[in-house]
């Protein structure tokens, strides 16, 4: 058997086993990391002793990073649903007439300006701005760095998540809305039972991307004195003079949180997928799997 045929055979066998695939990917990542560390240790750049002695040093900072990210993401999520709704549907109302137009014009303007302001400035700048302002308002309060930083992340992710929801809501077809109206649903019911559940399925992946991006952006809070992961790593690096070890450790913590999370969401999404909506069963495939997709797809396709 040639090398190419062998690779294809392995790939085919792995196709139906996403968990095994993920395990191999994560195992490969661990192996590479370990090889890198051992290699660097062998040439004397990295001290294994230092790594072992400080193995748990980043545990509490990791919790700080996670809390700030989870909290700001959740608040941003809740706020992005109504704001995404305004972004998605106000333009249509604005083409009409009457009091609705008068009410929605300033609202749409405000939400759009907010989104543009957030997307058009660096997150770093937003974090500094919020930190300075909250420091002025509450001088000397020891909790202010954390809460100010979390507020800044919330302000940031709200802008991005609003656009994610706008896209999700807009990609729910108008024919779905018309059908819901035709069975007597009120506008609120149409939103709750049709637009929202369909939209959420369409934006699972972009939302995970946003979460991962936000978690990584939380490293910027190190520069406004929040004792989170990067701050702790810098402490190890600067005060204990082992910067390379410190940054290897902090990278490992980020990877250990982000990679399993992405894999878990992907697994959940496939497990709960609805035929014809959102994530495809498999986008690439050979052999058997393609046949499965074809059998589940009747005339008329997946529209």
């Amino acid at each position: 058997m040639g090398l190419k045929a062998a690779a294809k055979e392995i790939w085919t066998r792995l196709e139906d086993r996403p968990v095994l695939r993920s395990a191999i990917a994560i195992g490969g990542l661990l192996g590479l990391g370990l090889a890198l560390v051992l290699g660097l240790a062998a040439v004397g750049i990295v001290s294994l002793r230092f790594l072992a002695d400080n193995a748990t040093f980043l545990a509490v900072p990791a919790l700080t990073s996670l809390s700030a990210t989870l909290l700001s993401f959740a608040i941003g999520f809740a706020g992005a649903i109504p704001m995404g709704l305004v972004r998605a549907f106000a333009p249509r109302i604005l083409r009409g007439e009457g009091w609705r137009r008068a009410a929605f014009a300033p609202l749409y303007g405000a939400v759009t300006s907010y989104v543009e302001a957030i997307r058009g400035t660096p997150a770093f700048v937003q974090i500094f701005l919020v930190a300075q302002v909250s420091g002025l308002i509450f001088p000397g309060n020891p909790n202010i760095p954390f809460w100010g930083g979390t507020l800044a992340l919330t302000i940031n992710t709200l802008g991005y998540q609003t656009e994610v929801f706008r896209a999700g809501f807009q990609s729910v077809g108008q024919s779905q809305v018309e059908a819901a109206k035709s069975i007597g649903m009120r506008p609120v019911q149409v939103f709750l039972h049709i637009t929202l559940p369909q939209g959420l399925r369409l934006i699972t992946l972009p939302l995970v991307n946003e979460w991962v991006g936000l978690f990584k952006a939380s490293a910027l809070l190190a520069y406004v004195a929040v004792p989170e992961l990067l701050w702790a790593a810098s402490y190890l690096g600067n005060n204990r003079s082992h910067p390379i070890e410190a940054f290897i450790m902090v990278s490992s913590v980020y990877l250990a949180i982000i990679v399993p999370l992405s894999k878990a969401v992907g697994w959940w999404e496939r497990k709960h997928r609805i035929p014809g909506l959102g994530v495809a069963e498999r986008t690439v495939g050979v052999g058997r799997r393609r046949a499965v997709v074809a059998a589940g797809t009747p005339a008329g396709g997946l529209d």
Partner: peptide
């Protein structure tokens, strides 16, 4: 209320418009 009217009169569409989820 138009919602009340639509409960009295059902509608079937050219492209079915079943709720995909």
């Amino acid at each position: 209320r138009p919602e009340w009217v639509r409960q009295q009169v059902g509608m079937v569409f050219q492209s079915f418009n079943l709720f995909t989820h």
